[in-house]
Design a protein around this nucleic acid. Sequence first.
DNA 1: ATTTTTCTATACCCATCGATAGAGTTTCCT
DNA 2: AGGAAACTCTATCGATGGGTATAGAAAAAT
Lengths: 212, 212
Amino acid sequence: MAARIALADDHPIVLDGLEQLFHLEPDFEVVARCRDGKETLSVVREQRPDLLILDIRMPGTDGLAVLRAIHDEGLPTRVVVLTAALDDEQLVEAVRLGVRGVVLKETAPKLLVKAMREIQAGGQWLEPGVVSRALRKLVQKDAGFREAEKVLTPRELEIVRMAGSGLRNRQIADRLFISEGTVKIHFHNIYQKLQVNGRLELALYARDKGLV
Amino acid sequence: MAARIALADDHPIVLDGLEQLFHLEPDFEVVARCRDGKETLSVVREQRPDLLILDIRMPGTDGLAVLRAIHDEGLPTRVVVLTAALDDEQLVEAVRLGVRGVVLKETAPKLLVKAMREIQAGGQWLEPGVVSRALRKLVQKDAGFREAEKVLTPRELEIVRMAGSGLRNRQIADRLFISEGTVKIHFHNIYQKLQVNGRLELALYARDKGLV
DNA sequence: ATTTTTCTATACCCATCGATAGAGTTTCCT
DNA sequence: AGGAAACTCTATCGATGGGTATAGAAAAAT
């Protein structure tokens, strides 16, 4: 019996391409085309397809939200993420949510079919190149981000954010209802922890690390 | 006689979708599929297709570079940009380079066909929504950028850049072989011209406007 | 129960920053 | 030739920023 596939992508042309692709494979049958996350979710809930090819970027409810819902509701559909470029964090999140496969749009269609068969048979399919590269980046960025989150106390993080917005010591003190001296102490500690040389470097650092 | 179309996109599935789409239209004939910019360029040079459907994001030589080459060499092929999301500056650049149409991937395939016919007949096709929105943003950003370039003298711009990198007055003075006092004067003038309240605000401003 | 961490505070000192005033040089435009 | 704009300098002064020492109170970890 042919595996029932649902397709979800906001680009009609991609849907056409996918449908055409699987039309040539007798062991797959496309049972639904979805243009946004909401539609995808209702289709998966009602039709219970065997497989879902899911684009991450979609208008409204995005792919990850769909994946999360499927995971949380324990729906039996196996999901393959098909996307142009996968963000590092998105990848990790997707894997955490039990995605069965990750395929880039720039890969050969035949490979996608192969991946689908693999998954239908109970396996997994992660493009090695993508995964390793993404994970490497993730480690770097995550290291920087979480480093800041770990070494800094909540209060210090708060102050870093304010400094990143261009506030003065006096202003920060007023907003936090503490003395200006205390603000200075916090900055002093922050500088030591983050190895930066003043509030300007700190502000730029905060911007880079996405702490603002 | 059917119009000869070349397709350029790094996603094979999209190529499949496009080919399938135009296969149903008797007045169009797909004569080439290209996976990167280099391939696209050689195809356009040799086969001189009537139309080229071009994705902006491609590995290696990207879509804009291809468009630039086609424009510079005076090749007769009319280009339609087909992309997921078009950057403001990219759009302006594309129009400047004589692109004949801009279509988003999320638009209905039938509309793409309609646009192609329009262009083949000598017209243009720009998605109104995209264009107006992009242009509005562009005006804003461009205004901010050029404003800074106009009101600031070359020397002042130099100093703004250095401040944006986190340098101190003393360091800036040393690098420019001027006295620290002069640096202060420049900053004073800059603050007045840009209506900012200190070097931190200035640095953030410079970052936003892309002056660094 | 004791130690550690976190947050808070004050006081002093020096470096840096920013505003202001006054003035000389060059360069470019009219 | 004359004027405007840009760049340079010195000098002063108050405000802000940052280092250091000292230390109390509350919360968390051991």
